[in-house]
């Protein structure tokens, strides 16, 4: 099942050349591989996001290496400069090999 994720830009309305706050949040357990299941007593295998990539208008602007020390349901917040209309795409991979993607359209006003 695809994990639910969300890209948020602040402020909601922005102009060309403006530097905006970009947050990517995703529903993910970020299992460390050290936690025991309370019911079965078995160790829950590690499952965590190990990389995140931000692309804007097809160009990579930020990449991240991620480890299990990030909190569950992580939120990644950076900044970027608005430079015209185009797609902002976030791709993330997990240590299990799964790859997921989400995107939003960037439409500057004025």
């Amino acid at each position: 099942m695809e994990n639910q994720s969300l890209i948020k830009i602040k402020p909601k309305k922005y102009a060309n050349g403006e530097v905006v706050n970009v947050s990517f949040m995703v529903m993910h357990p970020m299992e460390t591989g050290m936690r025991k299941d309370k019911k079965t007593g078995e160790i829950v295998p590690a499952q965590y996001i190990n990389s995140v990539k931000f692309e804007y208008k097809g160009k990579v602007i930020t990449t991240m290496n991620v480890w299990e020390s990030l909190s569950a349901n992580p939120v990644f917040t950076t900044y970027m400069k608005i430079d015209g209309e185009g797609e902002l795409r976030v791709t993330y991979t997990e240590n299990t090999g799964a790859v997921s993607q989400t995107s939003m359209k960037i439409t500057p006003k004025g």
Binding site: Q4, S5, L6, K8, S23, M25, V26, M27, N73, P74
Partner: peptide
């Protein structure tokens, strides 16, 4: 501002 529960609310 960036509450993880925003994801649950969206759901």
């Amino acid at each position: 501002e960036n509450n993880p529960a925003d994801l649950m609310v969206a759901n």
